[in-house]
Design a protein around this nucleic acid. Structure first.
Lengths: 339, 339
DNA sequence: CTTGGCACTCTGGCAGGGTGAGTGCTAACC
DNA sequence: GGTTAGCACTCACCCTGCCAGAGTGCCAAG
C-alpha cells in the first residue's frame, strides 16, 4: 500500500514533468491526479523518493524533477508502450509504402521517425556485417581496372574499383567470378574472409597476381570498409529544447556528427528486448548525458540487420516515443523482407 | 578623399565587428585603426554611412553594425581573398590526398571545410545532370528482375533494379546493352532522353516489352531520380553562435534539412565568378536571412560538375571563408580529375 | 572640412523589497 | 502507524529605482 502509492507518485511526477517541463509540487500533483490523499502526505512520499534518488529538487523551494534513475524506474515498471492509433498506422503505411529503393526507404524512415517523435531520428543502413552476399559481379573498367560489385540481400549494392598491375583477362575473370560466387553466395559477410582463404590455390601461377588483387580488394571491402551508413533527421527539433530548456545542444550536435558515437549508440541495442532505452548518464558519451536514446533493431525475426532510433531530452514522452520507434522498426522490417 | 575615408571607415567597422561581434563605436575605431582623424570626424562619416544604409545602430547609444548592404560593399570592393598559407595548403593536401573513392572524397571534403571555416559545410556530389555516362551494364538478379548499372565519369555509380513482366533473355539483353552503350557512352546525362527515343524501333515485336521496360527505367533514373546527394558537416558550429549571439538556429537547421533548399543554395552559384557570396536577405529562403552563404563550383575548368560551400552568420570572416572555399573547390576538382 | 566640448540617450548591472510556490517539521487525528 | 493541518522558512522570480558607461548628435570655433 505504502510502496504502491509512492510508485504512483513517481509516475505522476514523471508524467507531469514531461508535460510541463517544470518542477512539479505536491499541491499540483493532488490536483491533477486522483491520489486520494493530501499534499502533506505526498510530501512525505516525495521526501522518501528523493532519499532513494528517484527525484531531486533544483532548489529549496521548487518542486521535484525526476532523476535518470526515476525515469529508469518509470520506463521499466510504471509505463507500457502505448499502441499506435490505427490512423497513425495508416499514416506510416502510406508514408513508407511506396518507397522505390533502399535509399528511399531509409530517407523516408528517418523523416517519418523525426516527425512522429518530434525528436532527432537516427537510422542505420542494413549492416553489411549482418548481411549475406547474394551475387558478385565484375565489370572491367579499363584494361587494368576492374569494378567489383557485391549485391547484398538487404538491397545494398557495394562497388569497388580495384587497380590490378596486370591486364585483365576475360576468361580468367569469368572463372574467378564463378568460383567466388560458389564460395560466398548466400553467406554472411562475417564468414567471407575464411571462405576466401584458399581460393587462390586453385589458379595457376601466372593468374595469381590478378586473383590475389581481386581477393585482397574484396577482403578489404568486407573487413575494413564496412562503412556503416547512417542517416540523420529532425536535428532542428533540438533547437526547440535549447530555447525552453537550459540545455546546450552543441555537445549533442557534435555527438550526432560522429559516426562512431552514433554506431555505438545504435549498436548497444540489447537484442532480446523489443525496444531499448538508454537514459541520461547511461549513455557512455558525455555529450549525450542529458539526452535519452530509444532504439530498436529491425530486420528479420531473430536476425536483425541494423538499428534505428531517436535521440531526445531525458524528459521525453517515453511510452509515445517507444511505441513510435517500435512501430517504425516493424514496418521497415516488413518492407525490406518484401523485396 | 572624403569618399575614400568613408569606405575605409566601413571596412574598419566590418573588420572590428567580425572580430568582436559587438557594435563598434567611433572612439574604438580610431584607437584600433590608423585613420588619422578624430572620433568626431568619424562620427560624421558614420552618420553618412548610416544614411546610405551601409551600417545601422541597434539603439541610440550603441555603436554601429554593418547591414547586409554594408557587407556586400565590403565583399565586392573592400576586401580581397586572402591566400592560404603554405601550411594550410599542405594540410588540405594531406587531408584530401589519400581518399579512396568518391564517398571518401566527399566526406573528407565536408569535414575539412567545416574545420577550416568553423562553419557549416555543404558539399554536393557531382551532379548527374552535368556528368557523362561512361558505361552501362546489366546484371540479371532474378528471372524477371534486372539490375541496371550506370557508371558515370565523376566516379559515381548508379544502380537501379527494374522489374520486367517478361522473363529476361540473355542474348536480347546483350544486344540491348550493346546498342545502349553506343547510344549513351560519353554522352551527357541531359542528352540521354533524346538519344533513347527511337532505340526500341530496332528490335522485333516480341522483344519490345523488355526493351521498353529497360529504357523506361533508365529514363526515369536519368530524369526523375536525378537525386543530387548532398553532405553536411559542422552543424555543431551553429550552436556556437546561438549562445553568443541572439540568433535562433532552428530555422537554419530546418533549412539545412531540406535538400531542395540546399540545392537551390548551391545551384545559384554564378558560374563566371570564382567564389559566390550571398549575404543575409539576398538568400531567398527566409530561414537563412541572417546567414551568409559562400559557394564555389568544382569540376573541370568551364564545365563544373557541382558546388560546395559553407553557411555561416552574416558577420563572418569573408576573406578567410572565401579563400577556404575556393581552395577546397580547387583541390576537389584536381582530385576528381586525376581519377 | 575638422575638431573639441557638451548635453542627451539608452543599455546593463546591481541592490532592495515584495510575492508566491513549495518545502520540512511538528503536533494532532483516525 | 499512517495521515493530516498548520506554520515557519527558504528561495527563485519579478519589479523598481539607481548609477555608470558608452556612444551619439549638434554646435561653435579652429
Amino acid at each position: 500500500m505504502l510502496e504502491e502509492r509512492r510508485l504512483a507518485v513517481l509516475k505522476a511526477i514523471v508524467q507531469d514533468y514531461v508535460a510541463t517541463h517544470e518542477p512539479v509540487g505536491s499541491k499540483g500533483l493532488v490536483d491533477r491526479h486522483q491520489l486520494g490523499v493530501s499534499p502533506a502526505t505526498i510530501r512525505n512520499d516525495m521526501a522518501a523518493l528523493e532519499e532513494e534518488g528517484y527525484i531531486t529538487a533544483p532548489h529549496t523551494s521548487a518542486g521535484r524533477v525526476p532523476t535518470d534513475r526515476g525515469y529508469r524506474l518509470f520506463v521499466d515498471q510504471l509505463s507500457q508502450i502505448k499502441p499506435l492509433s490505427s490512423a497513425e498506422r495508416r499514416g506510416i503505411d502510406r508514408f513508407l509504402g511506396d518507397a522505390a529503393d533502399l535509399d528511399d526507404v531509409m530517407s523516408r524512415t528517418v523523416r517519418l521517425l523525426a516527425q512522429l517523435t518530434k525528436q532527432v531520428a537516427v537510422v542505420q543502413y542494413p549492416s553489411l556485417s549482418r548481411s549475406h552476399v547474394r551475387r558478385i559481379e565484375f565489370i572491367p573498367v579499363t584494361e587494368h581496372k576492374l569494378m567489383i560489385i557485391l549485391i547484398v540481400d538487404s538491397g545494398r549494392v557495394e562497388q569497388r574499383v580495384v587497380d590490378c598491375s596486370v591486364p585483365l583477362q576475360e576468361d580468367l575473370l569469368a572463372d574467378l567470378r564463378a568460383r567466388l560466387s560458389v564460395a560466398v553466395a548466400d553467406q554472411p559477410f562475417s564468414s567471407i574472409p575464411s571462405r576466401l582463404e584458399d581460393l587462390d590455390a586453385g589458379f595457376d601461377q601466372e593468374s595469381q597476381p590478378l586473383v590475389r588483387a581481386v581477393i585482397a580488394s574484396i577482403l578489404e571491402t568486407v573487413t575494413e570498409r564496412l562503412d556503416e551508413r547512417i542517416v540523420l533527421g529532425g536535428t532542428s527539433n533540438l533547437a526547440h529544447y535549447n530555447e525552453v530548456f537550459a540545455m546546450s545542444i552543441q555537445p549533442v550536435l557534435e555527438a550526432l556528427e560522429e559516426q562512431v558515437v552514433l554506431l555505438k549508440l545504435l549498436g548497444e541495442t540489447t537484442p532480446h528486448q523489443q525496444v531499448s532505452v538508454r537514459i541520461g548518464h547511461e549513455n557512455d558519451f558525455v555529450g549525450l548525458n542529458s539526452t535519452s536514446v530509444v532504439t530498436s533493431q529491425y530486420g528479420r525475426e531473430n536476425s536483425p540487420v541494423a538499428s534505428l532510433g531517436v535521440v531526445g531530452p531525458t524528459h521525453m514522452d517515453y511510452p509515445g516515443t517507444m511505441s513510435a520507434v517500435q512501430a517504425v522498426a516493424q514496418y521497415v522490417s516488413r518492407i525490406l523482407s518484401e523485396n
